[in-house]
Design a protein around this nucleic acid. Structure first.
Lengths: 193, 193
DNA sequence: CCTACCGATCGGTAGG
DNA sequence: CCTACCGATCGGTAGG
């Protein structure tokens, strides 16, 4: 039971850290800020985590692992490329709605990772981008998509979806389904008639 | 001539600051880092600027002023709404290509503004968003655009375009024209055929 | 989990 | 534009 209590506190620290990093950035968040949020002294947190850097690593790799898993799932689907792309964008949006603070850290604060961990994170992102780009490329080759520059289309889509993490709150009068549907319309069918 | 020299140094400080803020964030950039980049001691910079906060303000409002000017230009154009939207997106992309570091600060570090200046900046952003939203709304009413949720479409477009500032370098084998054309295709015509 | 504290670094000022 | 320095705050440790 002590084990369970400890890991629950650890998780609390990670959750609160993600929220603060999103709000004030990694550099702008002090261990004293975080400790106050969690409800203990700064020194006490070191019984649950090794360092401020470790907190950042745990949040970032939780997110990159999830993205890679989503990509692998979609790669194994049997469906037209448009549907695979739709499914991947959908999972992407879903994760932002469910875990927006951590996604924000993975989008903005990953650059404060150091050494091997920084390289590992960049490699994971590259793997995701390559996999996504391959879906677009194959979709064009199959005649399902407009023949656009693949890199430009890829980054336009990945970027387009990022505002959700900044904007979405349960209080908005847009349901997650409406949100997803409207984003898909703009990206896949275009805004113009 | 002393006036010209001083203001040139001041501009150099602002330019280097924008680059460093983009790279390491406002909180992660020290006045000593910046001084080293500019080629003087930290204390000496205070002959050209009042404070670290003032540097942030000057960069942020330079960008928000430019955005507002672009919006006003487009609002006065005589053209179909699709073309107005196309023109506004184009100006947006252009600014990122020309002044990517400052745009990055306006996108990411504005939240470190304080007091009235923070409120002013938020108001400018709101004004821009409202103006852009109005173009989409009128475009839908005129039957030129798909009847999407206006807020969702607006943020999808503004967000979609943001990766340019992170990704574009003169070395890429994509010309600014190609870049603009491909982004417009995805956003206005959609990726799917 | 806390008190007490370390050396390092921060933004900024005094004085020249 | 520099040297010298201020008080405040940083991430983290010792010891209990």
């Amino acid at each position: 039971m002590s084990k369970r209590t400890n890991s629950a506190k650890r998780q609390l620290i990670l959750d609160e850290a993600a929220k603060l990093f999103k709000l004030k950035g990694f550099g702008g968040t002090s261990m004293r800020d975080l400790a106050a949020q969690v409800g203990m002294e700064a020194a006490s947190m070191y019984n649950h985590i090794k360092s401020k850097d470790e907190i950042l690593e745990l949040i970032c790799f939780h997110i990159s692992d999830t993205y890679i898993r989503q990509l692998t799932e979609v790669e194994h689907m049997q469906a037209p490329y448009v549907e695979k792309i739709r499914a991947l964008i959908g999972r992407h949006i879903q994760l932002m709605i469910e875990d927006g603070a951590a996604v924000s850290v993975g989008n903005n604060d990953w650059k404060y990772l150091t050494g091997d961990r920084l390289e590992d994170f960049k490699a994971a992102r590259k793997r995701y981008e390559k996999g996504f780009a391959a879906l677009i490329e194959q979709g064009i080759a199959a005649g399902e998509l407009h023949p656009v520059n693949v890199s430009v289309a890829l980054f336009t889509i990945l970027s387009a979806v990022r505002w959700v993490e900044l904007w979405y709150r349960p209080g908005r009068n847009v349901t997650p389904e409406e949100l997803e549907e409207n984003i898909m319309t703009v990206l896949l069918n275009g805004l113009a008639k």
